[in-house]
């Protein structure tokens, strides 16, 4: 994920010195992700457009064995235990209409819709934070 906003990550409480980044895994995507799952508890990836279901399943099995967390940004073809759809509902702080040009972005309100095996019912969770992402 070469475009990940690292400043935002740091504002969200991630210690950058414990954060490794592989921006261009290229053709060896599968090998790289598998290695990272072996070493880290949380791995954030953007799956390539044509991720094969077999590879996706193998990676999920590896994640289970390692008790790690794999987050596929933009979806995961097969085997995910949870899916979270996020939608921004409000950009708070920006001046609208005649007040345009005033203030600054202060908070982002999002609706998160988790679905999957871990959730019995679909429900919406609203989050808002003055510092980027806050979990609900």
């Amino acid at each position: 994920m070469p475009d990940l906003g690292l400043l935002a990550a740091s504002e969200a409480g991630i210690e950058l010195e414990r954060f490794a980044l592989v921006p261009r895994p290229g053709k060896q995507w599968g090998d790289v992700v598998a290695s990272l799952i072996d070493g880290f508890d949380v791995v954030l990836v953007r799956p390539p457009a044509h991720l094969k279901a077999g590879l996706a399943r193998r990676l999920v099995a590896r994640v289970r064995e390692r008790q790690a967390v794999l987050v596929g940004v933009g979806g995961w073809p097969e085997g995910a235990s949870m899916r979270i759809d996020a939608r921004v509902t409000e950009w708070a702080g920006l001046g609208a209409g005649s007040e345009g040009g005033t203030g600054h972005l202060r908070a982002i309100r999002r609706d998160l819709r988790p679905t999957g095996r871990l959730f019995r019912t679909d429900r919406e969770v609203s989050t808002a934070g003055s510092h980027g992402v806050r979990s609900a």
Binding site: P2, D3, L4, G5, L6, L7, A8, S10, E11, H104, L105, R106, A107, I108, G129, S130, H131, G132, V133
Partner: peptide
Amino acid sequence: RVPAPAPALVHP
């Protein structure tokens, strides 16, 4: 400097 929160995606 633009105040927080920072953008989630920074285009290379």
